[in-house]
Design a protein around this nucleic acid. Sequence first.
DNA 1: CAATTGATGTAATAACATAACATATTGAAT
DNA 2: ATTCAATATGTTATGTTATTACATCAATTG
Lengths: 132, 132
Amino acid sequence: MTTPQLTKNQSLVFDVLEKAEGPLSAYTILDKLRDHGFRAPLQVYRALEKLLEYGVVHRLESINSFVACAHPGDDCHSHGIVAFAICESCGQVMEFHDHEVDHRLMAWVRGQKFKPAKTTIEIRGLCEACAA
Amino acid sequence: MTTPQLTKNQSLVFDVLEKAEGPLSAYTILDKLRDHGFRAPLQVYRALEKLLEYGVVHRLESINSFVACAHPGDDCHSHGIVAFAICESCGQVMEFHDHEVDHRLMAWVRGQKFKPAKTTIEIRGLCEACAA
DNA sequence: CAATTGATGTAATAACATAACATATTGAAT
DNA sequence: ATTCAATATGTTATGTTATTACATCAATTG
């Protein structure tokens, strides 16, 4: 999918995520956008919904947060499954794509006649700096 | 880890999960246990915390729910990473263990000098029956 | 210009999770 | 058996995350 022109709210939310050091919760985004006229969670959630659809933002299910995709200009949907390593201390997130992992997971679900829609791989732990 | 004798509340919560067709939210469990004296969410969350620790229950991060481990009598912690296929229509959950997937994910994080603590792999989609 | 579509604004509420504090139970050491 | 510590439990309140419902606005198009 090619990313269409972002609307005002979508741009505001995306900019906040891009400038952030790590993932942010929807309510943290809301707070950062109060000066720009945001008043309600839905303004954030609606923008996020589109940004997720366009593949420029990821949702981290295990920490209820959102992060800008690490591949600027790229369409993340074309990379297959994305795995995330999330530092529980500093919040830093690393992205990873591995075709063999994709392949094995998809081979398994195919064997089960299961139709996959969305796959989440999230590894929580400590990054190099925080583990030291 | 060997599973110790469960306490009263832990047993009640575990029994509810075992008898359930699929994953349940903490509040659904609470409702099912009101007749047994449960009044507050914390009673459920505290029992779940222990059951997760013992490896007899899994938390499904992407749907904020909990499910009894599919390997009765077994200690799930010894199987390495568990992958789940979750049917978004009927709620049915399948468990899967694959050493190659583990290995590749762990090789990657090791290369990043990242210290993994807990890994989540969840595939949402439609099971065979629901996809038909 | 009406009609449709997509975006936005606002209030209320639902759903998920934890903090703080009190009490009770259990089990080991004396 | 009694004391002590550790664990489990009960209760209230609150914090956090997400959605429903409804109204309005703006751009596009027939």
